[in-house]
Simulated scan of single mutants.
Amino acid sequence: MKKSGYATPIFIIGTYDEKGKPNAMNAILGEMSCSDPQHISISIKETTITHKNILDKEAFTLNVPSQTYIKQTGSLITECGKNEDKFTAIGLTPVKGELVDAPYIKEFPLALECKLVNTTEIGLCTSFTGEILDAKWIET
């Protein structure tokens, strides 16, 4: 097993804005918050487009990149979704979720479709809890 160079897992959060434009954001604050039914929580600053999109659509995807795409995920930190299409900029493909109004990333080996069920304000962030409605993975 190779060492990734990251201390925590990297999650890419997929959302749509009010016009249906896909957006992706790098997040490291995430965890399983319940196993039955399955829920996951992510924490995001209020100043981001992703924060607004999750509240508007009440949905998000959590995508886990493979080692192949680590460099592209780093670009998601520096690219601003207000000014640029992040998917085009870094060469990834958004795919419309089947069960939620949010895109997942075709090239990544794991994607969770989540329906927003709870929000909690914690300091500078909002913790979004989503019920996992579907999991998609690429078998290797």
Rank of each mutant, 00 (worst) to 15 (best):
T120W: 11
K21P: 01
G5V: 09
T140M: 12
K82I: 14
T61D: 11
I12S: 02
H51W: 15
T47Q: 06
E121P: 10
G91W: 04
N63W: 12
P65T: 09
T68K: 14
Y69V: 00
G130S: 09
G74Y: 01
I90S: 03
E84H: 13
N63T: 01
T50F: 06
P94H: 03
S75I: 00
E139P: 02
M32F: 13
F60T: 06
P94V: 02
N83S: 15
T126W: 11
A7R: 12
E113L: 06
G5C: 05
V117S: 00
A135V: 14
A89D: 13
E107W: 07
E107A: 02
H39C: 08
Q72S: 07
T129K: 15
D134H: 15
T120M: 13
Y16L: 05
V117I: 07
E31A: 14
A27F: 09
C80G: 05
K115W: 10
T47H: 14
L124Q: 14
S75W: 14
I105G: 00
L110M: 13
T8G: 08
V64S: 03
G81Q: 06
G81V: 03
M1Q: 15
G97H: 04
D85I: 04
S41I: 02
K71P: 08
K45S: 07
I138Q: 14
A24Y: 11
T15S: 05
S41N: 04
G81P: 09
I49E: 13
S43M: 11
M32D: 01
T140G: 14
T68S: 13
K82T: 07
D56C: 07
P37D: 09
I54H: 12
E139C: 03
D134F: 05
Y6Q: 10
T126S: 06
G97R: 00
D101N: 10
K3L: 10
I12G: 11
F87N: 07
E79N: 04
I12T: 15
T119P: 06
Y16T: 00
I13Y: 14
I77E: 02
I77M: 11
L112G: 01
G91P: 03
G97F: 08
K52C: 07
S35N: 08
I105C: 05
F128D: 03
F60K: 02
N26M: 06
K136C: 03
T78N: 04
L133M: 13
I42R: 00
N83E: 10
F87Q: 11
L62A: 13
I13V: 12
S35A: 05
G97S: 06
A111E: 09
T129N: 00
N118I: 07
T119W: 10
K136V: 08
A135P: 00
Y69D: 04
K2D: 15
C34G: 07
E113T: 11
A24L: 06
L62C: 15
K52F: 05
S127V: 14
T50Y: 08
T93Q: 08
E121H: 10
T73G: 12
L62W: 05
K106A: 09
K45G: 08
Y16W: 02
T93Y: 07
T73H: 01
Y104P: 01
E131C: 00
F108P: 01
T48L: 13
K52Y: 02
M25I: 06
P9Y: 10
N53V: 01
Q72M: 06
